Simulated scan of single mutants.
Amino acid sequence: MAPLGKATSVAYDGPSAVDSDTKVYRGDVDPEWTVGHVPNGGYVLALVLEAGIQHQSSTTHRDPIHVTAHFLQATSIAPFQVRVRTLKRGRGFTNILADLVQQDRTRITTHMIFGTLEPPRLVPPSRYARRVPLYVHPSAAVETRMARPWGFKHHAKWAGDPHLRAQNLPSDPARAAVSPTTVGGGSLVWGAWFALTGPSERVTPASIAFFADTFLNMPSLLPREERGGLVPAQTWFPTVTMTIAFHAPIPPPSARHAARTVGLYSTGTFWGEPQGRHGSYVEVWTAPSELGQGVEEEGWRENQVCLATATQMALALPMEVNAGRAKYDAPSKAKL
């Protein structure tokens, strides 16, 4: 049981006995970074990403640039291996394959691109540069309750942006104006400042995978009458596929950038069958101060950068499926 920085630790175990070109990293899935009985998808992807970062640490391509992950089977609270293999090493990028294995089964398979991450080109004051899309400065943000069945609640806190949440109401002017002649429209939005509470915690490249999977999705944001009987607190939203594009290096902690707080913004548009399939788009931003601290200064948005964007496809299943998944794995937890 550990804060995120320690819970994402992996250790090099040497080359694979089957294929010397494959390097093996080991670790244990922490029992607190869960959704119900199953490890959070972004958290376990952070374990895979950390193995990839260690694998690339002695090369010229040390920074993750892009990650594509397929979640083949839910992971469990048990030991794991990450098996990493270099697919292609080029002048500007290195492509690697990394699989997370538990109980002799590949649970997650990934394709990762590494390179050298540089500061973004399109930044303020350009009118074409995107600014952090949260309305309230972290110092003035009001902490909101985490209603989800998250085992890591005491390691983190967040403050949802009320201005974004209000845009989802049926009475919002933009939504009320929707008619048969409307072009586009629809969608739901959400945003929050998210902080790791441990004083020694830091935003890291691996932790971005966790942040990108910690948000309120479209089925949860819909008005009750639009959900078709779905109850978010009784629903498990397992990730099936996830991609992350890294856009900027993480700035060191300073008066302009927080050490353990990020801004999150997400949108969702489509929801349907099979199995409540839905997609989400997420942005992970730097924060100008820690949540509940600091002072709002003029132009604070101009100094923030988008660290990464992510998309995912997920399902909406009863929480009973989540509990059943854990029972299925229970007899062989100690086996890799």
Rank of each mutant, 00 (worst) to 15 (best):
Ala141Leu: 00
Arg165Ile: 12
His247Ser: 06
Thr34Asn: 08
Asn217Gly: 15
Glu226Ser: 07
Trp300Thr: 01
Pro288Ser: 05
Ala212Gly: 11
Leu317Gly: 00
Ala159Met: 07
Pro253Asp: 03
Thr106Phe: 00
Ile244Val: 12
Ala98Asn: 13
Gln234Ser: 09
Arg165Trp: 09
Ser126His: 06
Trp285Cys: 04
Pro3Tyr: 14
His163Tyr: 10
Thr286Cys: 05
Val44Trp: 08
Gln81Asn: 15
Ser254Arg: 02
Phe152Tyr: 15
Ala166Glu: 08
Ser16Ile: 07
Tyr12Cys: 13
His247Arg: 04
Glu297Lys: 01
Arg301Lys: 12
Ala177Thr: 03
Thr94Val: 15
Val142Asp: 03
Thr86Ser: 14
Ile208Gln: 05
Ala140Tyr: 08
Val183Asp: 09
Thr182Tyr: 06
Trp158Thr: 08
Val295Met: 04
Val48Met: 06
Pro274Asn: 08
Ala308His: 01
Ala159Pro: 07
Gln54Tyr: 06
Thr239Pro: 10
Asp104Met: 11
Leu45Gln: 14
Asn40Ile: 09
His55Cys: 06
His247Leu: 06
Ala334Asp: 15
Arg107Met: 08
Gln81His: 15
Arg89Met: 15
Ala258His: 00
Trp150His: 13
Ala159Leu: 09
Trp190Ile: 05
Leu336Arg: 13
Lys157Tyr: 08
Gly292Lys: 03
Phe152Asn: 11
Gly229Thr: 00
Arg105Ser: 11
Leu196Val: 04
Val240Leu: 10
Ser289Asn: 04
Pro253Asn: 03
Thr68Leu: 11
Trp33Phe: 15
Met146Thr: 13
Glu50Pro: 05
Pro3Arg: 12
Gly36Phe: 07
Gly184Pro: 07
Leu87His: 14
